[in-house]
Amino acid sequence: MIPGTAWLVLFFLAPLAIIWAISFGENTSLVKTEITGTLDNYWRALSDVVYLKIIWKSLWISLLSTALCLAIAYPISFLISFAKDKWKPLLLMIVILPFWINLLIRTYALIAVFRTRGFANFGLEWIYNTLQLDHLFGAFEPLPLLYNNFAVIAGLVYVFMPFMVLPLYASIERLDKSYLEASLDLGASQSRTFWSVTVPLTMPGIVSGLILVFIPMLGSFLTPDLLGGTNAQMIGNVIERQFKAANDWPFGAALSFLLMYVTFGALAIRSVLSGRKSGMEV
């Protein structure tokens, strides 16, 4: 218990407190920041609508990507959980394998997949030509897959997928399969069984997956930077710039905390909503 707490205080709460303090500070010189208790940084972020717009954009991109992650990860976790025991380690390994590669490299790899003369377009072109569609509609036009919101969302889903699969797999694995048989024996349809039995029983895994994926997505800056187009900027990019190019740590700290409040807000809404549904334990 003590090492855990010490770890949390030292590497999470203490740095967080420092950033929180800096968010009430001012730059007095190029290298000095003084904590003056000013609210100017927050005021600057809230008075210019552009920052709220960027937070909003980060929110919907992250929400959409999280939803896609869930939709893709759920069947995958199910598949692994219901696979023969000897296959399970291998299948899990395939999910975890990308973790062995640096995030930067994985993202660069996506550039090679999505660009105009990339693997995705080569593949599509091959299918198009094999189906002889070029005789009907003319030569294949490569799709613009890179440098737009699609690329950012695809990148986020790809990068964060394992964080969704693992908690889902854990909770599906714990699911007592006899409940499913009971439900089916008692006459419930497959879909009724899924929605009324499977989903509620795996809800803890779903919720931890959602949180594990959504929160880091909200603050990501590498993916929009590398895969996004000219309007891909998410709030993480703005914050990163304040700590580097703009050299304005107090403003960056204030933006970080605004983002955190938004995250808390989202979590609070979730717990209010789940509190309304009686009898469902999350």
Binding site: N27, N231, R241, Q242, A245, N247, D248
Partner: peptide, 18 residues
């Protein structure tokens, strides 16, 4: 200087958000 750097950064944020 810090003031002009801020001008550039804010313009850049707006350019990227437009």
């Amino acid at each position: 200087g810090a003031d002009a750097t801020k001008l550039y950064d804010e313009a850049w944020t707006r350019i990227n958000a437009a």
